[in-house]
Design a protein around this nucleic acid. Structure first.
Lengths: 191, 191
DNA sequence: AGAAAAAAAACTAACGGTCGTTAGTTTTTT
DNA sequence: AAAAAACTAACGACCGTTAGTTTTTTTTCT
């Protein structure tokens, strides 16, 4: 089954790459258009604004994260397994959508008004969900008792570098990457 | 002894706060000037360009990091103690210079030409130095053998969230923050 | 100590440039 | 023929910075 990529999707994809590379504010519609192979004014046949692109990218990533959190929560498994699964899914999203994830991680602050507010709420929901797993894991004795917020942010942050660093030509397999990070984090959580 | 803050320092400090908040590219000289309490054109009595400010901020942070790496290397101590000291110093720089560190972490990509090149080299030197400690720690059996680059970036990244999150009114002491993170990282490194 | 001169710093005005986007016109596709 | 998509031209806005002018501060002189 051949997947057809629309012009809009192509524009979004290129936008994400440029936003990641140069930053949202420093990326102009003219250079985006040039990369796509058209004039800037023509972009508006496919997108409604620069802001709309940023929103679309950020919210797609946010929603993927929330979906996967739901999957982890529905697992019948211990907390270590849940965090391991969480790490796996998180890295999978990252590696498959490097540019989108990078933009959602770094450029969200350029969202306007309600978009920003909604995105931050979405993020807060996600973080609370992960924190909940950590807290339960601490209560059950699987994880060492530590300040839940510090633990949460240290964990999430320790995954963040991958979107900066990852390239397909790295001399390392995704499995090894994941195993190393998983070990680091699970040990970090242990008593 | 009363420390006199120059107008230039005040401008740089305010610039760092705004760059952190809005991003370098999205911060105008006019709004920076307004925050400092003057007209944009007057800034040029004290700084030579917008780029020069970004450079100054980034390089001050970079140099602090390198200084502290030197201190850690000169310690007569085991590798666990070295990493613990490294974490302590890293967090200390971060907490005392939130805006500067944040800008150096996120806005460096806006540096131009030679400034960018030099900054990236500086960073490379720093990372190589930390990686060296990790490798030696692995060789000595203090740390588990893992891919050194993955370990390095996971470690550095796990400290990164503090500049986003930290505020003086947090219900947590710096000591507890440090202790929690230190435990996470040292356990993550252990066999 | 006070006045005058010099230097520094602040202001106003404007330059040359870029930006996101809109409004027509033309071309291509349906 | 109609609709969609591409183009050209331009709008209104903002930008970093320079060049004068004015004001303030510092230095020099008596």
């Amino acid at each position: 089954m051949i997947s057809v990529i629309t012009k809009r999707e192509s524009i979004l994809s290129t936008a994400a790459i440029l936003f990641r590379q140069k930053g949202y504010a420093a990326t102009s519609m003219r250079e985006l258009a040039e990369q796509v192979g058209m004039e800037a004014a023509s972009l508006y046949n496919h997108i409604s604004s620069k802001e709309e692109m940023l929103k679309s990218i950020c919210f797609q990533v946010g929603e993927s994260y929330l979906l996967h959190l739901t999957e982890v929560n529905q697992m019948q498994a211990g907390f270590r397994e849940k965090i391991a699964r969480f790490i796996h899914l998180h890295l999978a999203i990252t590696i498959q959508n490097i540019a989108f994830v990078s933009v959602a991680n770094h450029e969200w602050k350029h969202l306007k008004e309600e978009n920003l507010k909604t995105f931050l709420e979405m993020r807060k929901t996600y973080e609370a969900g992960v924190k909940n797993i950590l807290i339960k894991g601490m209560d059950s004795g699987d994880f060492r008792k530590m300040d839940p917020s510090i633990t949460l942010y240290t964990l999430l942050s320790s995954l963040r570098w991958v979107e900066v660093w990852y390239k397909e030509n790295r001399n390392i397999s995704v499995q090894e990457l994941e195993k190393n990070i998983e070990h680091f984090i699970l040990n970090g959580l242990s008593t």
